[in-house]
Amino acid sequence: MLLLSGAQAPYMEKLMRKFVIKRILISIVILFFVGLIIYAVMRFLPTSYIETIARQKSMQPNSKSYEEWMAQLSVTYGMDKGIILGYFQWLGNAFRGEFGDSWFWTVPVTEKFHETVWLSFIMGLISMILELAIAVPLGVIAATKQYSKTDYTISVLSFITISFPTFFFASLLKLVFSIKLGWFDLFGLISREHYHLTAWGQFWDKAAHLVLPITGLVVLSIGSLMRYTRTNMLEVLNSDYIRTARSKGLSERNVIYNHAFRNTLIPLVTIVGGSLPGLFAGALITETLFKIPGIGYTSYQAMVAGDIPFSMFYMVFLAILTLAGNLISDILYAVVDPRVRLS
């Protein structure tokens, strides 16, 4: 915003507001249809499957009866109506924050969500900070030393990390650090003697349990960010103003860090901004592998058990996060880079 000169500012601001409002409206329309598709998929699940699940759930201790489950389902999801009418009924309930009770967790969906989402957020935030701290410098180094051995090593390493399936890497981490070295526990967020520890000890206990999952998340995601930084840095380094800066006789350090890197930040900021909402999504696979009770693992358990209320809530939640991410990165792109036309 600082980049806008005085005379243009009001016009640009007006344009910007229009742009943002338009994007938000489009997002809402998209969300409506995404919700419809998710709802339709749930409705197309064979009825026998839903009934089986409901019957199983009613067998659990302290559970509602089968009829109650089915009745609740009909009310919340409008199962007795057609798809479109039923969707509107569900939508109406969702607007009021009523997503029904989770079958698997036997508590209201939103309650379970509040319980678990913050752990995922913390995990995601730490991983993201580490990821940026590692990937961006490496990407810059690779770009400034293009075609050198360092560049090739970094590139190949980034390709290797991209190619690792999460579950295999997690298994290797467990084998090395939990089994061979015995530094961390294999699963879970707390150790057996957790409740006998002091408050401070409990904190460290949890932190220790998060080390391996976060390592997995960071290592497997730095690759793409590193390549992204490198590509953008190279593009900037090849531009005219860098040549100008060099021909002025500026030191290479100055050229790279004051002129090139700042401009590389533009795409970086948009991509990072866009992935901020994703921090709430939870790392489904990683959490499941390490049995970390964040939103990812919680949802995985619910989904595998055929818990429709929770699954639907989680999927709509993810869709909202994706849309929010796109929206933020679009807006940031327009804000940070004055060259972008707002039309």
């Binding site: 249809f33 995404v34 989904m303």
Partner: peptide, 13 residues
Amino acid sequence: IFYCIPSTPLLII
């Protein structure tokens, strides 16, 4: 719209 459909959860379900 298709971009927004969370594919992993859908596949798991």
